[in-house]
Amino acid sequence: MQNLMKAYPSKAVALILSLSALLLISSQAQAQMYKWVGPNGKIVYSDTPPPANAKKLASKNFESNSSVSTANLPPELAAVVSKNPVVLYTAPNCGACNEGRNLLKQAGIPFTEKTVKTNEDVDKLMQVSGDTALPYMQINKSKFKGLESNEWRAALAAAGYPETSKLPKDYRYSDPEPAAPQVAGEKKNADAKPQEAPKPKSTSSNGIRF
């Protein structure tokens, strides 16, 4: 390796960065998501097993950090995505959500988008953010409720994301997914009456606050 660095210093550095990123990505552990009914009758999603007396609904394996594929990303960007994944919660007919989505895409930030449409989605949003405000962005464990463009940009920079887009020209963002996806093997009850989420001030009909 030392001879390689002396002969081709720039190529050696690139090789080391690539290997480091691959090792970091491959070290991500598979975790498991559990779903059960809490004492108050509401559905709980968590990566920790439910209490022994809880009514278990289902569980599934999921990628512990991010569902964003890093296969075609530059090594430096792939490493940031793996360490500080970005998740964006949005809802239909939400102007601020559209602005937040556009901000991330224009900055070249790979992210996972989760849509809030159903009451289960609202429950999931409440669990991860403690509120119903949208858009909601999460960078690893840092939470950002509502769109504050300067705050978002500063947080992304602090997380290690580049100031200008490093995405390949052929990069395509994945389609949004439900905030509370149906777990395999779970059947939807079409006749069940959905629970209404609490409606804070200035909310939409389903309790989501913009």
Rank of each mutant, 00 (worst) to 15 (best):
N3A: 09
L4T: 04
Y8C: 13
P9N: 01
K11Q: 13
K11R: 15
V13G: 03
S18M: 08
S20C: 12
L23V: 10
S26R: 11
Q30A: 09
M33G: 04
K35C: 13
K35L: 14
K35D: 02
P39Q: 05
G41V: 04
G41S: 05
I43A: 07
S46E: 03
S46A: 04
S46G: 02
P50R: 02
P51T: 04
P51E: 01
K56A: 12
K56H: 11
L57I: 15
K60F: 12
F62S: 03
S64N: 06
N65M: 13
N65S: 10
V68K: 02
S69Y: 00
S69R: 00
N72H: 13
N72E: 08
L73V: 02
L73Q: 02
P74K: 00
P75E: 01
A78L: 00
A79G: 02
N84A: 08
V86R: 04
V86F: 11
V86P: 13
Y89W: 08
T90E: 00
G95F: 15
A96S: 14
C97R: 03
N98D: 06
G100T: 01
T112C: 09
E113W: 10
E113V: 07
K114N: 10
K114C: 10
E120W: 09
V122I: 13
D123E: 14
D131K: 11
T132E: 00
M137C: 12
I139S: 00
N140R: 14
N140L: 11
S142W: 14
K143I: 14
K145T: 10
E148D: 15
S149G: 06
E151N: 15
A154D: 11
A155V: 10
A155F: 13
A155H: 09
L156S: 04
L156E: 00
A159I: 06
A159N: 04
P162E: 01
T164G: 06
L167I: 00
P168H: 01
K169E: 08
Y173D: 04
E177M: 14
P178Q: 02
P181N: 01
P181Y: 04
Q182Y: 15
G185H: 07
G185D: 04
E186Y: 10
K187C: 13
K187L: 15
K187F: 15
E196I: 13
A197W: 06
N206D: 08
I208G: 03
